[in-house]
Design a protein around this nucleic acid. Structure first.
Lengths: 186, 186
DNA sequence: CTGCAAACTTGCAGCCACTGCACCTTTGCT
DNA sequence: AGCAAAGGTGCAGTGGCTGCAAGTTTGCAG
C-alpha cells in the first residue's frame, strides 16, 4: 500500500519523529483523514502488522507432518512462514526493520504484535502436545522461539553480517533446542 | 510515588483508556504539567520502568561466583533480582501486571523496556563467555531467559494458579535449559 | 445512458497527549 | 533578612486520533 511505503521511506530518510501523518498522507496523495481509515495510528503504517499472520501460523503448525514433535513442527512452521515472507517482500522487511530498530516505540509495537501471534501459536502447539494453551510447555516453547526469531532478525539487518536470514534463524533455533549450551563446550 | 500509584489504581478501576492524565494528576494532588515533569508519558506512570534496572542486572551477572557458566550466572542473577523485587513491592507488581496484561500498548512498553535491559545483560554475558555482545550466544541466551521470565509472570498473575513466582520461574528456566524437551518424553 | 447503492474519500470540530517557556512558591542555607 | 536552587504551575501551541456528516467515485441493473 502506498501509505505504508511512504511512511517507511520518509521515516528512513528523516527519522520517525520528524515525519507527521500529514507528510505521509501528502506523499501518498490522500488526505490525513483517509490515513486513519487505513491505519489505527502512525506506528501501524510502519510496522504494518499482518492481521492474518496469527491464524496462518496456527494453520502452518497444525499442517506439519504428524511424526514431528511439537518443537520440530513449530520450527518447520516458522521457517516456512519466514521463507515465504522473505520471498514476497524481503526488501521491504529489511528497510522497515532498520527503521524499527532505532525507535523504542516501534520496537514495542513489533513485540506486542508478536505477542498476539504467540497466543495463536501456543494454542496450536498445545493441540499437538495434548495440553492446554496455558500450560508451561506451549507457552515457553513459542515464547523462546519468538526470541530466537527476534535475535535472528536483529543479526540479519546488521550491515556487518551478510549471512541470509534462514541461516541465522536455523543457527539460533539449533542453539535453543540444544539447551543453550555454552559455546566453549558443556 | 503518588502519581504512579494513582495511575495504576485508576486504570485498574476504570480501564486505561478511560483515565486521562488530568485524572491521575488530580488524584495525586498535583497539576497535569507536573505529571510530565516525572513521567515521559501516561504509559510510563503505569509501567514505571526502573532506569537503574539494566545496570543493576549487569552488575548482578558479573558478581556471580566465577565457577558458574554464563547460563547459570544469568539464571542466578535473574532469580536474585526478582526475589528482591518481590520482597520490596510484590503487591504493586501484581496489580500493575494485571493492568498491563489487558492493554497492548502497555504490554508493548513492558517488552520495550525489557529489550533495553537485554542489551545490558547481553554485554555482561558476553563478558563472562569471552565473546562480543553481538554474538549469537549472548543475545539468544538473554532473549530466551527474558521469554522465560515473561511466561513465568504471565502464569503468576493467573488467579487460577496460586504457585509462587520463584517456583514458576525456576520451572520455566529448567525447561529452557533442557532444550525445551517435549513433556511426554524425549 | 440513467439511476442508484455501496464503497471510498474528505473536511471539520474537538479531545487528549505532550512540550517549551516563563513565572511563582517553597526550601534550606548563609 | 536575603538569597539561590529545586520543584510546581499556567499557558500557548503542536500533533495524534476520532466521530460525524458530508461529498465523490465505482460498478452494476434497469
Amino acid at each position: 500500500m502506498a501509505l505504508s511505503r511512504a511512511a517507511v521511506t520518509l521515516a528512513h530518510e528523516r527519522g520517525y519523529d520528524n515525519v507527521t501523518v500529514e507528510d505521509i498522507s501528502a506523499a501518498a496523495g490522500v488526505s490525513p483523514r483517509t490515513f486513519f481509515n487505513y491505519f489505527a495510528g502512525k506506528e501501524d503504517a510502519i510496522v504494518a502488522p499482518d492481521p492474518e499472520a496469527g491464524a496462518r501460523m496456527r494453520r502452518r503448525v497444525l499442517e506439519q507432518p504428524a511424526e514431528l514433535g511439537p518443537g520440530a513442527a513449530l520450527r518447520a512452521a516458522l521457517v516456512d512462514e519466514i521463507a515465504e515472507g522473505l520471498a514476497d517482500e524481503g526488501e521491504m522487511w529489511l528497510l522497515r526493520m532498520r527503521v524499527v530498530q532505532q525507535h523504542p516505540v516501534l520496537l514495542a509495537k513489533v513485540f506486542a504484535s508478536g505477542e498476539e501471534a504467540e497466543r495463536n501459536l501456543a494454542s496450536a502447539v498445545a493441540e499437538r502436545s495434548g495440553q492446554s494453551s496455558t500450560d508451561l510447555y506451549p507457552m515457553l516453547l513459542v515464547a523462546a522461539a519468538g526470541a530466537a526469531c527476534r535475535v535472528a532478525f536483529a543479526r540479519w539487518i546488521d550491515p556487518d553480517d551478510g549471512r541470509p536470514m534462514l541461516t541465522l534463524l536455523g543457527e539460533a533455533l539449533d542453539l535453543l533446542f540444544a539447551g543453550l549450551a555454552a559455546p566453549g563446550g558443556p
